[in-house]
Computed example of a mutant assay.
Amino acid sequence: MKIDLTGKRAVVSGSTAGIGLAIATGLAQAGAEVVVNGRTEERVRNAIAHIRETAPDAILSGVASDVGTVEGVAKLAAEAAEADILVNSVGAALFKSFDDLTDEDWLFMYQLNVMSGVRLTKHYLPGMMQRRWGRIVFISSESALNPPKEMIDYGMTKAAQLAVSRGIAELAAKSGVTVNSVLPGPTRSEGFGNVLEGIAQQTGQTIEAVEQGFLEQNRPTSLLGRFSTTEEIANMVVYVCSQQASATSGTALRVDGGVVRSIV
């Protein structure tokens, strides 16, 4: 199977690091024009330089904006007015106990993890439906199906993404626009990796030992037995954005290493 996204324009929120950067890189390698998004000009420039290392001929641009805010979404939408592909990959986790989470923390997580995708989809969906082709992908998590006690706020936002994604897929039915969610499992991304590296330094363990300890304690059902790479998650997203995935819509696609013990 050869995925060719030449002539398609992709907007990837939160694409200066981690899973988002891997997705932007994969889409660029498949020939798509990619709009990179991050909170600062420096991070956007660095991400574009990284993508060019493996996709030197890619058409790339960047918009520095915080899409966890109304103003940030408006800036991205103004500077990248149209898109054939939208990947809502921006997200964060606070790693706070339930008792320590403030009202502000809950609202911050909801604005960034959920409302960013709602607002961006609201902007780009009408054009996709008018052109009779489009791909919208929400990067959710296996935590949407297995809400973790150590990140209840995160699990809540990821479950909300599934509801939003399915509802929009229903709205876009028979239009040529597909809407799906992708659910990664434990992944060695920048944000989670920083947390694990901090634990490794504090305990004198290797990062590999910390990862194994996390899996054994928090995700013992993992069939993979290791963390996924960001590229492994991106591979699924690139496929979902392709013409070959035209019959896949309204679904939640797990790339969780078998963490979720379910056959459907």
Rank of each mutant, 00 (worst) to 15 (best):
H123W: 05
A163F: 13
A169Q: 05
E232W: 10
D57P: 00
A17W: 04
K174R: 14
S13L: 11
R166Q: 15
I263P: 00
L101F: 01
L196V: 03
E79A: 13
E53V: 09
A172L: 01
S181C: 15
E211R: 10
P184N: 09
Y110I: 12
A28T: 12
A10L: 07
R219M: 12
V35N: 09
V237L: 10
Q243A: 15
V264P: 00
T102S: 15
Q130H: 14
D256P: 10
F227P: 03
M128W: 05
L162F: 03
K122Y: 11
L21S: 11
V255T: 13
S228F: 02
A234S: 13
A159K: 08
V255C: 11
P147I: 02
M129R: 15
G14T: 10
V34T: 13
A234N: 09
Y154S: 02
S89L: 02
A10E: 07
S175Y: 04
R188L: 14
E216L: 08
D256T: 05
N37W: 12
V177E: 06
R226H: 13
T69W: 06
E197G: 00
S189W: 02
N146P: 00
L223H: 07
I152N: 00
R132W: 03
I136Q: 06
K96R: 12
F214E: 02
K174V: 04
V118G: 03
M128I: 11
E197N: 07
P147N: 10
T25Q: 10
G213A: 04
L145S: 13
A58R: 09
G18V: 07
E71Y: 00
I51N: 07
S140N: 07
D256Q: 12
D103F: 04
A159M: 11
G91Q: 13
K158S: 06
V260C: 05
Q244E: 15
L101C: 12
Y110R: 06
S61M: 09
G14M: 13
A160W: 04
